[in-house]
């Protein structure tokens, strides 16, 4: 991966994130109370992460089968509200074991 591309990308990400945070702080004083806008913003993180995870997760390891097992493991761990690190590692270890078994 090219260093210039990465630096440019990081600059874009950091710049955009900062712009969002700084604009209201220095420009606006009025509070937004629009229900639809607030609801829209509430759903955004879940929608983004869902769309990014499925179906991409199934091609994230050496095989579809190991990825499927990892995915199910993650869903079970997440259902029982394990920490992010536990769920991430649980998915990876499960996928690893399935690959180790030769699938």
């Amino acid at each position: 991966m090219k260093t210039e591309y990465l630096l440019m990308g990081i600059l874009v990400m950091a710049g955009m994130t900062y712009l969002i945070r700084v604009t209201p702080m220095v420009l606006f004083r009025k509070k937004i109370n629009h229900k639809w806008v607030k609801s829209f913003l509430y759903y955004v993180p879940y929608v983004v992460l869902s769309a990014m995870t499925f179906p991409a997760i199934f091609s994230s390891t050496g095989s579809k089968l190991s990825a499927s097992f990892g995915c199910v493991a993650a869903m079970i761990l997440a259902y029982f509200k394990r920490s992010l690190l536990t769920v991430a590692l649980g998915a990876a270890i499960t996928a690893f074991l399935v690959q180790l078994a030769g699938f």
Binding site: P45, L49, I57, S60, C71, A74, V87, L89, G90, A91
Partner: peptide
Amino acid sequence: IALYGMFIAI
């Protein structure tokens, strides 16, 4: 798969 696992946890 870990990154996706983390997304699922969220």
